[in-house]
């Protein structure tokens, strides 16, 4: 579905991502892990076309931008914006329409469905700026789900969610995969990443590991990380 070949990103001559190659296949749940500043978000933004890679190639096969749902990091969305929850979630359908068109019944039903799944339907008329961090996260997730016909790209999806809600979210993503959607997400949370992902990409500017989650869990590399974390 997506293929990245030797992708590098640099800011002011400093490399943030250095020659990373990997593929996302339909039905995958790829989890990108790594420390802060390891280039995870930059890589995601490259795939989404928000950043130009300084070198390398990213190609889509059987996927167009309008079939992607994207969850940005919350801080990148203006928090003082006058928009209600319904408007925000429905705007996920924006890419599916050409210029000069309006949302139809199908779009509205889909937005409604996703608001209910994330438990934000009762907030539908509330303003985005009056929500708590966790509520905002769920609203943006609902928007991403509303947009995602084929692929979900999530940047730190459980940030700001309490543990129960995070567990619900992983379950929901599992459901999305069963429905044939592909998921690519960035996570800090190694343990749950390993549990729910089918593939892992471990970044530290370069790709330290790319392969099936089971293999990652069994690797000395991962054990080393866990050991270091436990001490």
């Amino acid at each position: 579905m997506i293929s990245c070949r030797n992708v590098s990103v640099s800011y002011d001559g400093k490399a943030a991502v250095d020659g990373v190659s990997f593929d996302v296949e339909a039905g995958d749940c790829l989890c990108v892990v790594g420390e802060n500043g390891s280039g995870k978000s930059s890589l995601l933004k490259c795939i989404l076309g928000l950043l130009k890679p300084s070198s390398g190639e990213i190609t889509f096969d059987g996927l167009s931008r309008s079939e992607i749902g994207y969850l940005p990091q919350q801080a990148s969305v203006r928090s003082d914006f006058p928009a209600n929850v319904g408007e925000v979630v429905l705007s996920g359908r924006c890419g599916r329409h050409g210029p000069f068109s309006f949302y139809g019944k199908k779009d509205k039903a889909l937005a409604e469905h996703n608001m209910e799944r994330l438990g934000v339907a009762p907030l539908r008329r509330k303003s985005y700026r009056d929500l708590s961090g966790g509520q905002r996260q769920r609203v943006l997730l609902a928007r991403a789900l509303t947009a995602a016909d084929k692929l979900l790209m999530l940047d730190e999806p459980v940030a700001g969610l309490d543990p129960a809600m995070a567990a619900d979210l992983y379950e929901l993503l599992e459901g999305e995969r069963r429905d044939g959607r592909t998921v690519m997400m960035i996570s800090h949370d190694l343990e749950s990443a390993v549990r729910c992902a089918s593939k892992i990409l471990h970044l530290r500017k370069k790709a330290l590991f790319f392969g099936p989650a089971g293999q990652y869990e069994a690797s000395d590399f991962y054990r080393g990380l866990r050991g270091a974390g436990d001490e």
Binding site: S64, I68, A83, V88, S91, C94, G95, H97, P99, A147
Partner: peptide, 22 residues
């Protein structure tokens, strides 16, 4: 009026709009 929905999406979150094909 014809571009209202797009204008909202681009005003609210330009990155999301770009990433999802607008």
């Amino acid at each position: 009026v014809l571009s209202y929905n797009k204008i909202f999406a681009v005003t609210f979150d330009e990155d999301f709009a770009k990433a999802t094909g607008t």
